[in-house]
């Protein structure tokens, strides 16, 4: 056991646990997009930033990957953390305005403006899987760590980094289990309230129940769309989500791999 101060509260934590685990144990909410229990922490979404240390040496770190240390002081909701979260969610909305999950988080954490211009094709137009994917890496990790397949991975780096299947083809390792779809945090229901004028929806703040059920089509970020190749029986199980994915995927997924 180590002793730390979290939001001014002296708490105990198990050695080797992450700040995120400790915070959640003590019920301090920390939003995440790339974290899922049972998968290795990855630290890509940066939404779980918390402030550690004091004075000029204090800094923001991703709570999911940072291990507790004896005597450390953690603040999960300081002004600095809040500012980072808001700016981050503004950036997320601009990247993937059609994700209801992201729009909800933006509303929840008080994002009131989105100053970025839509990327090509946004909004309203079918999403561009490469541009709109937030690359949280959950699909890649669930495939490798839980399904023991390693059928998808990241390709490229920097601005051209994206989730891909090797050589743009379904690999032998892929059992078409659909775990990647299951894991994706943003490909659920589509928020269609964002417009060219404002990528930010904020609808959930104003209306209740939130974002009516009428928006039922979902998104898929694999290129080419992974679900398009899923077979019939599976589609039944997942139901409407996959149907919608399939249709959407048909529209946008280039049929050629990047190599050919």
């Amino acid at each position: 056991m180590v002793h730390i101060t979290m939001n001014g509260l002296a708490v105990e934590a198990e050695c080797g646990s992450s700040l995120l685990e400790v915070a959640r144990f003590y019920n301090f909410p920390i939003p995440t997009l790339c974290h899922e229990d049972g998968l290795n922490s990855y630290g890509a979404c940066r939404l779980c930033l918390v402030e550690i240390g004091e004075g000029p040496k204090s800094k923001l770190v991703a709570a999911c990957g940072y291990r507790v240390e004896e005597g450390m002081k953690v603040r999960t909701n300081s002004m600095r953390v809040q500012r980072a979260r808001r700016l981050l969610l503004e950036l997320y909305v601009a990247t993937c305005p059609q994700s209801k999950r992201i729009q909800d988080l933006a509303s929840e954490y008080g994002v009131r403006q989105c100053r970025y211009q839509p990327v090509d094709g946004q909004p309203g137009a079918p999403w561009d899987p490469k541009a709109n994917c937030i690359q949280c890496g959950l699909c890649v990790r669930i495939c490798a760590e839980q399904m023991m397949a390693g059928a998808i991975g990241f390709s490229g780096r920097g601005k051209s980094r994206h989730v891909a299947r090797p050589f743009g083809m379904t690999s032998e390792q892929c059992r078409q289990c659909g775990a990647c779809l299951y894991a994706c945090p943003v490909c659920e229901l589509r928020c269609q309230a964002s417009t060219a004028e404002s990528l930010l929806c904020n609808g959930c703040l104003n209306f209740s129940p939130v974002c009516f059920q009428s928006y039922s089509d979902a998104m898929c970020f694999l290129e080419p769309c992974h679900t398009c190749e899923l077979s019939g029986p599976f589609r039944h199980e997942v139901g409407i989500k996959v149907h919608a994915l399939h249709d959407a995927g048909q529209k946008v997924a280039p049929s050629t791999g990047e190599l050919k």
């Binding site: 990855y42 630290g43 890509a44 979404c45 940066r46 981050l88 950036l91 997320y92 601009a94 990247t95 970025y116 211009q117 937030i134 690359q135 890496g137 990241f154 490229g156 780096r157 920097g158 601005k159 051209s160 980094r161």
Partner: peptide, 22 residues
Amino acid sequence: FLEDESCGKCFTCRVGTQRLKE
């Protein structure tokens, strides 16, 4: 330079440098 040389893992760095450049 940076949007190309960033490894691309952190959302802030990958998308941030792209948006800054934009």
